[in-house]
């Protein structure tokens, strides 16, 4: 199962509330909320695809400025993802 360490940036005054919402997602653990509005979290999911979908959801949340990726481990991930058009 892939695991990633992410940094979510928001305005400092909104960080606490957003951290709570983020922590409500299955597979997301909030490890810290920093004074400058950065939230440190660990994401785990069944596949890289699910992980990306999860992070993509965080990125779309109201108040989130950006989601950035610090660390990504996917050592047991299987090859996947044939192309949509099947070309």
């Amino acid at each position: 199962m892939p695991i990633s360490g992410i940094v979510v940036s928001c305005r400092p005054e909104e960080a606490g509330g957003i951290a709570e919402k983020i922590a409500g997602n299955r597979g997301v653990e909030v490890h810290g909320v920093l004074a400058d509005g950065k939230i440190v979290a660990v994401v785990e999911a069944d596949s890289i695809d699910a992980e990306v979908a999860l992070v993509n959801g965080l990125q779309q949340m109201e108040g989130v400025i950006s989601v950035q990726l610090a660390y990504h481990n996917f050592e047991d991930a299987a090859p996947e993802g044939a192309h949509p058009a099947g070309l």
Binding site: I3, S4, G5, I6, V7, E29, H31, G32, L34, D36, K38, V40, A41, V42, E44, Q68, A70, Y71, H72, N73
Partner: peptide
């Protein structure tokens, strides 16, 4: 997971 959290903290400046 500990590695992931540590890397994210470091990148966030902690």
């Amino acid at each position: 997971k500990a590695c992931a959290a540590a890397a994210a903290f470091a990148a966030a400046g902690v």
